[in-house]
Nucleic acid binder design. Sequence first.
DNA 1: CGGACAACCTGGCGGC
DNA 2: TGCCGCCAGGTTGTCC
Length: 275
Amino acid sequence: MPELPEVETVVRGLREPLVGQTVLGMWYDWPRVIRTPDPDSFAARITGQTFRAVNRRAKYILCELDVDTLVVHLKMTGRLYVSDNDAISEADRWVHFSLQLKSGRQLRFSDARKFGFVALTPDPAALIARLGPEPLTDEFTPDVLRERLRRHRRAIKALLLDQAFLAGVGNIYADEALHRARIHPQRSAASLSDDEIARLYEGIRAALRSGIEHEGASVNWYRKADGTQGEAQRHFLVYDREGQPCLNCGTPIEKIRVAQRGTHYCPHCQPLASN
DNA sequence: CGGACAACCTGGCGGC
DNA sequence: TGCCGCCAGGTTGTCC
């Protein structure tokens, strides 16, 4: 579920309850959720370490401890939150991993679909080595985007979903960014004009910033670190709006399939003219 | 290079 | 109410 804005929101919400906390122990009930190392080694290594920082790279949550980094990926249905030891919430139904904190609270990882994972490593860079540029940083510029687009002929939406091309954008924000840029999702990447690339650059950043501003999109599974829903879904321009009027021109939003993913766009504002 | 598709899993929903 | 098929925001690997 979570894309860059959702993961960013979770990270921000975890800092206060997590940083400074020491790990007393570990629990799990689904071994495959622990990617590396093996569960016994994981428990032995993380016990006694203290959380020093919580950061994000693309859709990866990076919790820095004294020696290692706890890496968490939420994939589609993962949730990461801190609860009082005796507190029970809806998401606990799918908890598969937790850490006991010295504060008398627990860091819990819940994942209904079991696609997500936790990993403990002294070298998190290896796990995230193949990621493309981080779209909201200064190093990501229109020139960077243009140079990278030149190398590809794929549908632009497929490229936006490719984490090695650009890190952090997923299905929701790809649709939102393309609508803001007024570009059809099936346009060939190499066919985009300089003006279109400039619009795409702004569209990507604006869509992601809107998502962060509204604390993530709770279309279905996503929740903030405190368990409440985000509000970004109330500000979608096209995603999940099939058949509803385009907010710009009134034309009904269409849903098609691009790169095997549900894709929402306005056929009037995002024409497939020059390809 | 890239497109298609399976795999990893389960929940929710619409249709009958 | 029950069952069935379909869909789902992610990532990786394989095959062609």
